[in-house]
């Protein structure tokens, strides 16, 4: 576990030593494609590869036994301008309590495997034979305010087809070599890329959080009256007997 108690999770079947060894082995296998590798104790293994070698790296990993395709997605690392749209008392209370540590969190401690671009590509591959999984990442550079196109891995993993279409729809990433880069979820006339942080949720912008506005203060005299009524009913029902 990450909290420094020292003992491994009893259920962590892979073990951190094996994970470190795997990281070293894969870094050697992929050569200079690997920019950075990161092992989080008791959790997972991240490899950040060069975007130019995304295709070559996934091919090499598949040939090394990581032939089970997990998922492919992306992350937008900018902060949403609206935040969580909420300035409720609850939020304020939460922010005030112990904010000194988390608000000062530097970007590099968040990103496993490092990187500084706005968009990062993310995929997971399993190796059923070795009972191991690896998360691979790649920085997507930006050109003219839009993310540069990235290589498609649909010819390596057929399952990447829909995942790449989803990433295209949600983040506006363009996958070179994908034959059918169309909307997968949203109607064809939909504009924008919802999972980009600058995509606003209009309902939130125009409507307050319904869970908060529902609570209405009961006037004290009404409350006393209601309580008296309830108590009268309670006693009438013979509960006192």
């Amino acid at each position: 576990m990450a909290d420094g108690t020292g003992d491994e999770r009893p259920d962590d079947q892979m073990g951190d030593e094996a994970r470190e060894a795997l990281a070293a082995e894969l870094s050697e296998l992929l050569g200079d494609a690997v920019v950075e590798s990161h092992v989080e104790a008791g959790q997972n293994l991240w490899l950040r590869v060069d975007i130019e070698q995304w295709h070559a790296a996934t091919t090499a990993l598949r040939d090394a036994g990581f032939a089970y395709f997990g998922f492919l997605s992306a992350i937008d690392w900018t902060d949403a301008p609206e935040g969580r749209y909420e300035d409720t008392e609850f939020d304020a209370a939460g922010a005030g309590e112990d904010d000194d540590a988390s608000s000062a969190t530097a970007e590099e401690t968040v990103r496993r495997g490092g990187g500084e671009t706005r968009f990062q590509l993310l995929a997971q591959l399993h190796s059923p034979a070795r009972h191991a999984a690896v998360l691979i990442k790649a920085d997507v550079p930006e050109a003219d305010g839009a993310p540069a196109s990235v290589p498609s891995i649909i010819d390596i993993f057929s399952g990447a087809d829909w995942h790449e279409r989803e990433a295209h729809e949600m983040f506006g990433l363009v996958f070179n070599g994908h034959p059918n880069l169309e909307h997968i979820y949203l109607p064809t006339e939909f504009e924008g890329h919802p999972l980009r942080k600058d995509f606003p949720l209009l309902a939130r912008a125009v409507k307050p959080w319904p869970g908060v506005v529902d609570i209405e203060e009961i006037p004290p005299e009404l409350e006393a009256q209601l309580e008296a009524e309830v108590m009268a009913e309670f006693e009438a029902s013979g509960a006192g007997a």
């Binding site: 997972n44 939460g94 309590e97 112990d98 988390s102 969190t105 401690t109 968040v110």
Partner: peptide, 8 residues
């Protein structure tokens, strides 16, 4: 409040 980081 969850500390910064990534987990899968």
């Amino acid at each position: 409040k969850v500390p910064a980081g990534e987990a899968y």
